[in-house]
Design a protein around this nucleic acid. Structure first.
Lengths: 340, 340
DNA sequence: GTGAAAGCGCTAACAT
DNA sequence: ATGTTAGCGCTTTCAC
């Protein structure tokens, strides 16, 4: 696969006995080059399959026209949807996307990050891996002059750009709807405690109950490590309560599917109403659906993140208020009713 | 975001009054540099947040250490699974992956391809978009010295490298199993005629019936444009047959889900047995499953494609038989029984 | 309208 | 053990 070398501007110049600069200009139709020369150059270029070595240009311009995207896992629809939106924005500005999956592994995430730095990506969009608290490496990027925008799962820090989803809005509406249907025993199956997503759900849950003057019962609050076994165990402990809930708010769709499996096998399907945070299924094809699903608009998040990043790269983000030098956007979530 | 420029080897050299080559060597711990010099260099480097500009190195070496991956849509689990496998192989050799989704659009695919060429990716892995027959652009890559490996959806041409899945093996086993259960009226809901995937399914279907001396009935052969409406229409036309099938082979899981919707709404769920080509769901969470699912091993395909590509890039593919200069691999599919 | 020269950051061959 | 030189392919002043 080595062999044939691609022809360069210099070589074309030699062939035509003109200077490289002339060729360079002719190639891009610069007005100061005579029509005849331009034609001759372009003819030779075509004949020899000439392709501009953009890699040389990138190097020259100190721009790679590449965005790095780090997400836990692209097989989650949430992220592939976000990717689509990001790709769209990037393409429009002739940017390419380099991807790296962390698989929710901090070390992998750091390896990917290093590779992106090596490649001199012009900017990075990242949804940090769950369990990740230590984001020093990202703030260090400022020294390298690489802008970063976080989305979805964002670190709790004031000194960075991010786009996140505000879970409260959707969750509150969901709780309101449940209460309107006279559900007062509302449980929560939450995720691992060290996730900010978990904390947010918890806060929303408590706030929602408070608004309706429903006392918070600690026996109705469970957590799961997100493994199928963990999910089922959490659900099971709710079922076995002497005073079980009638409605349950679940960390996400994956967890919910396991809950469904359990209650189906126990013949308890109609016993509970569920609200879940959308991250996966196309519920249309399922027989059992949650009562409501809290949508976090991955496409919107991805789009905004990419747009902000592009502006950062292009140095167009002056219009920020001086007192919040960082672009921080909280998109409202929304509840979608799938059942009644 | 402009401001600070990163320090370069030259600058470090100036600071320490040594030559750039010394710095370059010291930075990578070259043995011929004295311990003391090495230390001094590395100290300065650290203090100034020095980062090797790999982009310069890439340019120099004429290698970008980047693979381009073109697929229709990463939100299909089939492709994200393949991506995972490809990423693994690439990472191991310090390669990055640039992705481009064609969304089954030939023009988009060509745009992406051009960008990849611009970026001087070292190699490309592609699952061409459905409907794509015209792959001249890919064979042209040979002139640019960029190796390409196709996978999954491969053009029907002898002069290229590919990894594909041989549908026949799985399909035949599936038909055997159906016949063993005394299903003789086996229908086929196939995809758009211009897809090679469609042709392959058709061939397998006819071959399977022939082996069991089952006459091929043209009224049992339907096609869909893969839209939900098209899927439902195809299924419906089978239902309405005066002599309807008892088993149906379906183009893929997406189509099947629509078929299920229809027969559920008509109360005909137990009327038909289905065999589908796996591309989507985790059936574990569904109440209605197909009888069997033909697995095409995206991870395997991706892995092999990436390995072949890396070998091609590294010029290690001499061991090919001289008479098949192209690496062509047909992975057997397998049927997985989900129901009985 | 065209050319000459310098430089982007780094490496490697060839000195010393 | 370290320095010198040239060069990767292109662009961009600055001349002419």
């Amino acid at each position: 696969m080595e062999g044939k070398k691609l022809i360069t501007i210099k070589e074309i110049a030699k062939i035509l006995n003109v200077s490289p600069s002339t060729v360079s200009r002719a190639l891009k139709g610069h007005p100061s080059i005579s029509g005849i020369t331009t034609e001759r150059v372009q003819k030779i270029a075509k004949e020899n399959n000439f392709v501009l070595n953009k890699s040389a240009i990138f190097f020259n311009q100190k721009r790679s026209y590449t965005l790095g995207l780090i997400v836990p896992n692209l097989s989650e629809p949430f992220f592939s949807t976000a990717l689509n939106a990001i790709e769209k924005v990037a393409s429009a500005q002739n940017y390419n996307i380099m991807i790296g999956q962390s698989h929710d592994h901090v070390e992998t995430e750091m390896t990917v990050l290093q590779k992106f730095i090596d490649h001199r990506v012009d900017g990075i969009i990242v949804s940090i891996s769950k369990q990740h608290k230590f984001f020093q490496p990202y703030t260090d990027l400022e020294k390298l002059n690489i802008p970063v925008v976080f989305f979805d799962c964002v670190p709790e820090d004031k000194y960075l750009h991010y786009v996140a989803s505000n879970l409260h809005t959707g969750l509150l509406k969901g709780i309101n709807a449940l209460v309107a249907q006279r559900h007062f025993k509302i449980a929560l199956i939450n995720g691992p405690v060290n996730l900010s997503a978990t904390r947010q759900r918890l806060i929303g849950y408590i706030k929602g109950l408070n608004e309706h003057h429903i006392p918070v019962r600690s026996d109705l609050m469970k957590t799961t490590d997100l493994s199928p076994a963990g999910n089922i165990a959490a659900m099971n402990s709710l079922i076995e309560l002497s005073d079980p809930p009638s409605a349950i708010i679940v960390f996400n769709d994956n967890v919910l599917l396991d809950c469904f499996s359990l209650i189906k096998s126990k013949g308890l399907v109609d016993q509970f109403k569920f609200i879940s945070f959308a991250n996966q299924p196309d519920w249309k094809y399922y027989d059992h659906k949650p009562f409501g699903s809290i949508e976090q608009f991955p496409a919107e998040q991805g789009k905004i993140a990419a747009e902000v990043l592009m502006k950062l790269i292009n140095g167009e983000l002056h219009h920020l208020q001086s007192d919040h030098k960082y672009y921080q956007f909280n998109l409202d979530s929304e509840i979608i009713y799938l059942n009644d």
